[in-house]
Structure formats: structure tokens, C-alpha cells
Design a protein around this nucleic acid. Sequence first.
DNA 1: AAATATATGTCAACCCTCCTTACCTAAATT
DNA 2: AATTTAGGTAAGGAGGGTTGACATATATTT
Lengths: 172, 172
Amino acid sequence: MTKFETHENSENPEPVMTALQADDGLDFPLVELFFFAYRDFVADADEVLGEYGFGRAHHRVLHFVNRQPGMVVAELLEILKITKQSLGPVLRQLVDSGHLVQVAGPEDRRQRLLYPTQKGRNLSIKLTHMQTRRIKRAIEALKNKDRESIKEFLFAMIEPEERDLVEGLMEK
Amino acid sequence: MTKFETHENSENPEPVMTALQADDGLDFPLVELFFFAYRDFVADADEVLGEYGFGRAHHRVLHFVNRQPGMVVAELLEILKITKQSLGPVLRQLVDSGHLVQVAGPEDRRQRLLYPTQKGRNLSIKLTHMQTRRIKRAIEALKNKDRESIKEFLFAMIEPEERDLVEGLMEK
DNA sequence: AAATATATGTCAACCCTCCTTACCTAAATT
DNA sequence: AATTTAGGTAAGGAGGGTTGACATATATTT
């Protein structure tokens, strides 16, 4: 390594002056657009949730319980990939605020089946509706208005091993 | 309101038994796919960042400084929409670890111009490359392989008032 | 030259959401 | 009767944010 090869020297503390440019291996437009698109996708819901003192954790719980009423706590933990200690406070707040109810399992009374109340159902619909509206408008802005391609793309972005699980959640 | 109209009563604490279904106003497939797609999009980078004891805050700072070397602290704060108190520790860690350097502004010596080192450049390339690979494969999986439609879609998902700012960041 | 404004840094205190470890109860299973 | 399982809860910590207050160096204005 000579002083003429410093561009490859990771120990060199000198500033790199050139901007990082797009090339074959670096698709900045799509990487950055995906980041900003998601930021705004969740921003709508965040605002409404804030009015209830809720965060994204509440949103996810509310969503999946509405999608699969009667879900048990263990199933929810698996979908969300969090621990029951993390879920605890979130679940309690949603129950205390009257958005969810817990019902002892009819077969196995150790289980706590999770259901939305009408209030929880209404909030979930409101949140999903806002997100749907943004997506709908984005697709209508496309030249070809091809919703299927967007679906294919998003599905293909998911880790292959996770795709079956996601399909299982969605096909209900 | 009679007891036969409880389905519209938000005060009713009874569980709602039916699953929330897709309809005109609720596009569950796309809402859920977008959530899972983003989760896995960031997971790749999270793993590498973890090896350095870094989080997503470090990733964002590293990314934008590499995209616009010589950026001043105030510009970075505006892009990230965080406070300088939040940025402080993140910036210090990136400087201490040799990924970024700060240079006094040539005109205005109060300013601290932010530059990546070669080490910081290499890490930024590595992270962007992983995310690009996932996107590239997802587009190749499309029937029509139409990258432009995906770009249009993601751009249209961004809040209209933010689009100029995002375009400004990207066109460099 | 003095006063003020600006760019940045730092300290303290706080919130949220997630984590791990550990322990508890109730109910089901062996 | 002993063990396992479903769920709850408490303690402590990390990460990434927040606000308020104050310090320093440098530029700008008066």
C-alpha cells in the first residue's frame, strides 16, 4: 500500500469528498423512495393513534385481532415477534380503553381469546381505510394502474421463508 | 337506539366475532404486504449495523452524509426531522468509530461539515447494496419487470408536500 | 468595539417500545 | 400428585426519541 492507493485504505481518516452515486449495485432512487413512502404510509395512522395515546404497537395488535377475532395471545406473539412482556402493557391499554376484550377459551380455559369490541372494530376500520386511500391514489397515479404488479413486487420483497406465513394471514 | 341496533353502538363492550374482511375501502392485501415488505427491507441492514453497535439512526445519518458529503449539521437535522440533542450521540459514535469526520466550514467556521471516511463510505455502500439486491430481485420476479411503475408508485405514496424535498435529495 | 444572532454542542430529565430474567397463578395433562 | 402449558407481572436495561437550559465559538449588526 502506497500513498497513491489511499482510496482503498479503510484506516485512512481523510474525508471522502465525492457524493455516493447510483450505479449497477446501488439503486438509490428505489431505496430512498421506499424509505420515504413507508414513512408517510404510517404517518396517517400515527396521527390518529396519538389521539388515543396509542403507538404502532397498539396499531398492530388491533389490526391482527380484528383480522382474526378469537386469536389467542400466543398466536399474536408469534405474528408480531415480540415477547409477552412487551405485549402486556399494550394489551392492557387496549382492553382498558374498551377496544379489545379477552374471553376465556371455551375448551381450554387457560387461554385468553382476543376479540375487538365495536369500538375497536371502528378504529381498526378507520386506520386501514386511511392507508387504503393512500395506496389507492398511488395506484391511480400509475400510467398503467397495474395493482397486480405492485402486489407482486411487495410480496417478492418479503423474505422467502416468511412468505407462507404472510399468505396465511392474508387469505382470510 | 334499541337492543336490536347494537352493531352500531360503540359503547357496547361485547366482542365482535366476525373477521374484518377486505372490501372497497379496505385493501388488506396491499396494506399488509407493504408492512411486511418494509419490515424485511430494513432487516438486512439492521443485522450488519448490529455488528457495529449501530441502529437505524446511524444508518440514516451515514446514508445522507454519503449522498451529500460536506452537508452541515443543520441540513441533516432538517432531512431527518429530529433534534440536535437526538443527533448528538449518534454523530459522536460515528465520528469516534471512524466512519465520519467533521471539518470546520471554510467560509463560516462555526459550521461543521460532515464527510464520510473511506470506512464510512464502504459501510454505506455495503448497506445500500444489500437493499438494492432485494429490490432488484423483487423487480426481476415481476411478470412485466417494470421498474418504472414501482418508482411511480412509491413516489405517489409520499405526501405531496414532501415530494419536492425528496426529489431534491434524489437527483444528485 | 460592543451587542446580538447563529451554528453547534452538551447536560439533565423524561417517554416509549422493545428486550431479558425471573417468578406467579390457573388450568390441563401425564 | 407431579409436571407442563397459557398467560400475567415485576425489575432492570437498551435504544432512540423528546424538551429545556445553558455553553462556546464565530459572524453579523449596530
